[in-house]
Simulated scan of single mutants.
Amino acid sequence: MNKSRPTPTFKGFWAFCLLLIALAPLTQASQTIKIITIDAPPWVSRSPDTGELHGAFVDVVDELANRTDYAFEITLSPFARVGRELELGVQDCTILAPLPPSLTTMGELILKQPLGVIGHSNLALTSDSDLAGKRISVLRGAALATKLGANTNLNMVFDKDYATGLRKLARGRVDAVAGAIPTLQYIARGAGVEAYLGAPLVLAYIPLNFQCSKKSNHLDAMGPINQAIKSMHDDGVINDIKLRHGF
């Protein structure tokens, strides 16, 4: 005699539905977004002792992971390589100054980074006219070098990195150093030359936006991430990160 197959109960059906609901967030959480940026403290840098990443960028990404359930894999790179990695789709997203619209889809603003000049502690800088005739250390090829180069009254000294310019400032070989102000101040503290720095003269603000490669397979993540960034501004979290890292 054939036994009839038991009829599924409503209890079993609802248990199955609850299991699907419980597993649904794992689909999003399993997605890892590769995010690339440049090594520039206090934005982000790697500890030479532990190899761990720290800085404002890391705090922002950690908060995004908490608020969106996406995982993020961080890569540090020279600036020139960032564009190539995004263009090829090797990396998904970045947080940097706006890149060409042909390359990325623009997302929310994270913060604005001040660029300018920091003079020696005995030099008062209140406007760009105070820079006339002064010896100013700049990074060759930097956007700020181009801006300052339009002023023929300046004596620009090209250096390979900020640390070199700051050492020259401490020794009196230049009158001021130009660049990203939070980074200059961070490096000066680490090098023990902060006492030689005067008040910064801000010349421009560079927006740092979340943006994703148009070749990324995770463009659908931009909606939740942009919403998370907005909520971080509303909650004051972005402002706390800025203050904590000197932006």
Rank of each mutant, 00 (worst) to 15 (best):
T152R: 11
K112L: 08
L144D: 08
P101I: 05
L111D: 06
E108C: 06
T94P: 03
L99E: 04
S77R: 15
L76P: 07
M106Y: 09
S102L: 11
Q91C: 05
R140H: 08
N155Q: 12
S129N: 13
A142H: 15
L125H: 05
L154M: 02
N153W: 12
V82G: 03
L86P: 00
D161I: 00
I136S: 04
K134E: 10
A145C: 12
L131C: 12
L148G: 14
T126I: 07
Q113H: 11
K160I: 10
S121W: 11
G89E: 01
T104K: 10
Q91W: 01
K160S: 11
S129Y: 07
V90A: 06
L123K: 05
R84T: 00
P114L: 06
T94G: 00
L139Y: 02
A163V: 04
D92C: 02
D161N: 15
V90L: 10
P98C: 07
T104L: 09
E85L: 00
D159W: 01
G141V: 14
I95S: 07
V138A: 08
L88A: 14
N155F: 07
P98G: 15
N153H: 15
G83R: 06
A97S: 09
G116C: 07
S137Q: 01
A163L: 14
V90S: 13
R140W: 03
P98Q: 14
K147Y: 15
G149E: 05
V90I: 11
P78H: 11
G116F: 12
N153Q: 15
T94D: 05
A143M: 14
L131T: 05
V117T: 06
A150C: 13
V157P: 00
I136C: 01
L125M: 10
T146L: 11
N151G: 12
L154H: 06
E85Q: 00
T104N: 14
T152F: 14
